[in-house]
Design a protein around this nucleic acid. Sequence first.
DNA 1: GCAAGGTC
Length: 870
Amino acid sequence: MKLVVTEKNDAAQQIARLLSTSGKPKADKVYDTPVYRFSHDGEEWVTIGLRGHIMAPDFPPELKYDRKEGWYGLTTEGEHLPARLPDDLAKPPYETKRKPFLKDGIDIKGWKVPSLPYLVWAPIEKLPAEKGIIRALKNLAKKADSIVIGTDFDREGELIGSDALRQMRQVAPDTPVSRARYSAFTKAEIDHAFQNLVELDQDLADAGESRQYIDLIWGAVLTRYLTMARFGGFGNVRSAGRVQTPTLALVVQKERERQAFVPEDYWVLWGMLAPKGSASEDDSFKATHATARFKDKAAADAAFARVRDASEARVLSVEKRRRTTNPPAPFNTTTMQTAAAAEGISPARAMRLAESLYMDGLISYPRVDNTVYPKSLDLKACVRTLSEVPQYRPTCQALLSGGPLHATRGKQETTDHPPIYPTAAADPGSLQPAEWKLYNLIARRFLATLGDPCVTEGTKLTFDVEGERFTSSGTVVVEPGFRAIYPYGQRKDEQLPMLSEGDVCDVRKMTLDAKQTEPPARYSQGRLIQEMEKCGLGTKSTRASIIQRLYDVKYLKNDPVEPSQLGMAVIDALTEYAPRITSPSMTSELEDDMTKVAEGADTQEDVVTHSRALLSGVMGALIEHKDDLGNAIADAVTADAKVGVCPKCGRDLVMKTSAKTRGSFIGCMGWPDCDVTYPVPSKVKVEPIEGEAGVCPVCGAPRIKCKPFRSKAYEICVNPACPTNREPDIVVGTCAVCEADGRHGDLVAHKSEKTGRRFIRCTNYDVCGVSYPLPQRGELHATGETCPDCGAPIVEVVTARGPWRICVNMNCPGKEKKAASRAGRGRGTSASAKASGAKRGTRAKSTKSAKTKSAGGKSSKAKSPAKGES
DNA sequence: GCAAGGTC
């Protein structure tokens, strides 16, 4: 039996399909791992897919977390950091084993190494990370006559293959092993690779392993240092790394540019014009002075003085220019992430969604650099498949009825995977809304790459107004081309009226606006991904998760991306004491070292030791300034948590977490001397307001900015008892429980002065116990109506999105019905999803969400009338 | 409780 080991299940399946004589390999399992059995040239073959790296490098157990000691060399008190070094380095359990590394100023491989914390010189071991797969791999290796390593054709692939081989060698020390190198799943390519087997390139694998070691050593040492310089409690890791830190530095640098930016005044002179005699408002259009930005106020004023009372504008010239925009290139990971980010899907979320669509068989493999469709891809068949989706049908039919299809080509061409394209027709009803949003983007992008250019016509009108020149421009789509199916990022048409040279327009209004130049814009998440790619930071598979990591450790906030005070403090500190890690150049130097190892010009040991020496070179300065850094971090964390100033004692009010309930509240830094606390408005992101506007003029408590998810931010005083937050009590209905008991009770909407939360309570609450929750936002009105399903009152809530009516009973049977019908919509499995063999698709998800909903309803604190009666 | 790189 011949054993083929690939990097992932998908590849194992494809290779089996392409090499099997019958074309139909048999799917089997070894323990829990899928394998594919088939015969090839009369020989029995089996393929198995790994899950990427199956081994994880780590420090020996004694250097990992210790309950008493914390991370080695750094305790939770933080005090021991300098004290433990170098004294403790001479102590057991390490002195016998690792003594040579611990003396001052010794030579290691030609580099002078000063006294160091252990970790910098600690040995690294590789431990099994995928035990189940390793078990299956060994099981097959024992039975195999020969082994082929068929992992991806890149450095990491060589390393993954080498790790797998080491495991197999434990049980099959003498079985012949070779390496297949392929870069596309086509019959010709795979046949060629397996007829021209080579040897595993251990140098290349060693290069990859050096990368693993260097990343771990620098990351772990600096992360432990930052975290322990001032321990902020569990769950407050301050991380650093070869990729994440330079990425954070990019964001911080942009923020510094914005802070250093000095706005300049300028003036814009503009007016509204309309064709002579037109009475319609729709005909008016904007015209701006030919000097788009007046830098000089006197000149602006002078021009304005000449035109302010003008009544006529004469057309001096009409310029028309046609512009064609070519259809976009096929999606690879980066361009897909960027386009998704522009639609409000973060890169990390886009990758999660793409993974799910891929597993459901709806799109092709989502981790690709390639932007050129391979010749083997049957574009027509893809279009035919997509025509099953009603939204795409007209476009698909137009494409199919035309001549041969021509697709755009992007700049990057590789042949391992095709660009991201839809592989099956999706049913919007059976996908989660976000999944559909991404699928729709990918499907439309695919159709757009086959479309015609979009032709727009721009018109530029020049006017004379009392001797001053004004211009007006508009753009109109003439031939939508690919834009008909791919409207993303398209600007709205700006239509100008039909005018000719010499025509006269009415001047409806003239205005002089004083403006200021804006600082450079922050990065959007999409732009940051692109910037990382430009700087060589991370890979297509890791960039999204690295940005997510920076958000998770609270170095970044908001979108567009903004650094927190903490993020800036970390960059400042590392720039001063370990500048190497803050710059993308560490990555490029690492690449050079890797190349040397791969070429055999240097060894893994040399490269890693050299890197350790560089790190050890900065340890002294880091440790010396541990307290400065600890203080800077603590101050930054406080600044990030600050919401305003305490009206009672003048100290900072910060966001705190209750030890008992785990909930957040706003409390005074002066506690226990000062006991001022406020509740945090629920379901919103809270930001302080700078300056005078950040203090409530009525009660003196801070005013804060609240940003609810996906709706408009608003500002309120944090003090729920403040008169600015008071709402009149409203009678919204009659208590059904009290009526049944022969009493009368009014249901009254209150706002608690303590918590600021709104709720409904019966005036006889002590007797009947009837209360209901209320939406916390929006203006509340009584309707006088009762719910047909449960008899509870119906209230109207007016928000920015408009008024809506709701039955206040959380357990109302009507809500269950609605929830069921919502879930039911997702329950139907589409023909396409079935065809594509969707296993863990939408069915499980929607059932789960339906369950969550009903469970939430039952556990609600609201007491229904029925419950009150019993 | 550490990184970045694979993949799920």
